[in-house]
């Protein structure tokens, strides 16, 4: 299986700051779904930022979809980002636009026609169970619903890769499970998914690979260990 994400001995520090991640290597296969875990500040977000070219590695190589990100010029970044759906803990919706218009954004920038946009947006909203809310404004929705609007926006243009940063951080366990199930459904239709989360108890029941990062370095864990750790905490 070809890799969709390949990190080779990647380090990163923000300008003048301490090293956030150092010498990290890992891969995510095409069509694979994996979880990225670790305590807050361990470098999970930075790893996702490097993947979406929101930051550049200070050392090492990041290859996404066969492209070395160091070779992507500033002017090519938009085209690169259109291949990736990104989801945050804070869904960062545009509050003065309806749910429909928020989800339509990625299609608008790609120049889809009006009919096409309507069809695809409704399909995406249907997938996250928010079709009846298409005319609502984000601030009238619950946290979980907002998060799902963000997910619909990330998947509406069918990118081959989904990155999610703490997508369940604000949600209660049941809603969090729903969101994870949603990601798994996207994964089933061929989308590669990388989810950063510290909801270890939630993902321990899932069959996917777990990449653990601590103090900027990486270790792959078996779920049993994670379970032990959860028990330690509880």
């Amino acid at each position: 299986m070809a890799d969709i994400i390949h990190f080779h001995r990647v380090s990163h520090r923000y300008d003048g700051g301490p090293q956030i991640i150092s010498d990290v290597s890992f891969t995510l296969g095409k069509g694979e779904m994996a979880f990225l875990t670790g305590p807050s500040g361990a470098g999970k977000s930075t790893l996702l930022r490097l993947t979406a070219l929101l930051a550049r590695a200070t050392a090492g190589q990041v290859v996404v979809e066969g492209k070395n990100l160091a070779d992507i010029k500033r002017s090519q970044i938009p085209a690169f980002r259109r291949q990736i759906g990104v989801i945050f803990q804070n869904p960062s919706l545009l509050n003065e636009r309806t749910v429909f218009d928020n989800v339509a954004l990625p299609l608008l920038i790609r120049g889809h026609s009006g009919d096409d946009i309507g069809r695809r947006v409704r399909a995406a909203l249907d997938a996250v169970g928010l079709l009846p809310k298409e005319k609502a404004f984000p601030l009238t929705l619950s946290g979980g619903e907002q998060q799902r609007v963000g997910i619909a926006r990330a998947v509406v243009a069918k990118p081959p890769l989904l990155l999610a940063d703490e997508p369940t951080g604000n949600l209660d366990p049941q809603l969090a499970m729903d969101v994870m199930a949603l990601f798994m459904r996207f994964n089933e239709v061929g989308v590669s998914v990388l989810v950063a989360t510290h909801a270890i108890s939630l993902i321990s029941r899932l069959p996917h690979r777990v990449i653990h990062i601590e103090k900027g370095t990486l270790e792959e864990r078996r779920k049993a260990e994670l379970m032990d750790k959860t028990h330690d905490f509880s």
């Binding site: 938009p78 085209a79 990104v86 954004l105 926006r153």
Partner: peptide, 14 residues
């Protein structure tokens, strides 16, 4: 600003 950030994030061309 927020809107522009979202636009850049989803890969809107300049």
């Amino acid at each position: 600003r927020d809107e522009i950030e979202v636009m850049k994030l989803i890969g809107a061309p300049n």
